[in-house]
């Protein structure tokens, strides 16, 4: 059976879901598999809820992941993790960065930010579905930049996905080729920290 992965990257505009999506695209190409990465540009990028779909397989048709079809969800923010949790298939893996970014309706006092998101999700997870919550932002800071949350999350999920870690390193290098080598190193560090935190659990 050939490998196939449906990965959802959910976050707030500006959190780097696009770059993580690009990373998986590069990895799939290296594996000789078909891949589609669907992005959100334009108005929604301005601090809105953004979602990037990555589909990898022998032959991929729709670039969009249907509800119940995601093998992995990488949520860069708690509320966004909950918003898109229904995309996960039974037995899939949901990784959530334990950080909260208040949407404007909440900041304006017109809506409530649910205070028990991770507990609610955990209470409902069954049938082999895995949920992991981690403080990716703290690890990103440790790695050298708060903006490396996307690579911490990717490192964390690398523990569960049947893809050689060397491919992740290669792809991170490719992503920053021509730019500062320091950026590639820093993001690899973020990746390693993400990976290590899951191993420790």
């Amino acid at each position: 059976m050939t490998k196939s992965f449906n990965i959802v990257l959910a976050g707030v505009g500006g959190q780097g879901t696009l770059l993580a999506g690009k990373l998986f695209g590069l990895i799939a190409a290296k594996m000789g598999l078909d891949v589609k990465v669907s992005e959100v540009h334009g108005m929604a990028q301005r601090g809105g809820s953004v979602i990037t779909y990555v589909r990898i397989g022998e032959r991929v048709y729709s670039p969009v992941i249907e509800p119940g079809a995601a093998d992995f969800i990488l949520a860069f923010e708690e509320l966004e993790g909950m918003r898109w949790a229904h995309l996960l298939r039974r037995g899939g893996t949901l990784l959530i960065n334990m950080r909260r970014t208040m949407p404007m309706p909440v900041a304006m006092g017109q809506a409530e930010y649910p205070d028990n998101i991770i507990e609610s999700i955990l209470a409902l997870s069954e049938g082999g579905t895995s949920v992991y919550a981690l403080d990716a932002q703290k690890l990103a800071e440790e790695a050298g930049s708060v903006k490396a949350v996307n690579f911490v999350m990717t490192g964390a999920m690398s523990h569960f996905i049947d893809i050689d870690k060397a491919l992740f390193y290669e792809a991170i290098n490719d992503l920053f080729s021509g730019k500062k080598a320091a950026l590639a190193e820093m993001n690899q560090r973020a990746f390693d920290l993400g990976s290590a935190i899951i191993e420790a659990k």
Partner: peptide, 16 residues
Amino acid sequence: SAFDKSALPLAPGRPP
């Protein structure tokens, strides 16, 4: 789906 959307707390919108 692994999660029934209606069983989770209501997610406030996040407009741009």
